[in-house]
């Protein structure tokens, strides 16, 4: 009985989770971290991270999905938006957290769709100050095909 009835229950609560925050994650950016990412997308090694490197900071997204009982394998990535306020380089100390910024539901006779917008703010921890260096906004879609009645 994993059909529409169980999803109705969870979709009712999902909207209420707007504003929910993940834990704060910290990562020191090593040379290897950026080099591996560059190699994976076919770029020469660099000290400065390429633009889509921000995707490595998805720990907060994964944590929120787990808390919301949503399975990553059922998510479709619909849209990704990045804003850059400064470069991310080898040796940087980064902290980030993710928030559920919006939940939209669309229902048709054939399917239920939930659009989940997750916003991650990245900060660079300096010796004297913490600086906002980027923002990542992901929209994930969870789709459930309904059985014909």
């Amino acid at each position: 009985m994993s059909g529409p009835s169980s999803s109705d229950a969870s979709s009712g609560t999902l909207k209420d989770k707007t504003g929910m925050c993940s834990s704060v994650f910290k990562e020191n950016i090593t040379e290897k971290r950026i080099a591996d990412f560059c190699a994976a997308i076919g770029l020469p090694v660099s000290k400065e991270a390429p633009p889509t490197f921000m995707t490595v900071f998805r720990g907060g997204e994964f944590e929120l999905l787990q808390k919301l009982g949503l399975q990553l394998s059922k998510a479709l990535h619909a849209d990704q938006h990045y804003e850059y306020y400064g470069p991310i380089c080898v040796g940087d100390s980064i902290q980030f957290e993710t928030q559920v910024s919006q939940v939209l539901e669309k229902t048709s006779p054939k399917q239920n769709m939930q659009f989940l917008t997750l916003e991650t703010r990245l900060q660079q921890i300096g010796p004297h100050e913490v600086k906002l260096i980027g923002k990542a906004v992901a929209t994930l879609v969870f789709r459930e095909v309904l059985e014909p009645k």
Binding site: D36, A40, I41
Partner: peptide, 13 residues
């Protein structure tokens, strides 16, 4: 596989 481990996106799809 290379991208999965470099990005941390291990979604098995």
């Amino acid at each position: 596989k290379k991208y999965a481990s470099a990005s941390g996106d291990f979604n098995e799809i």
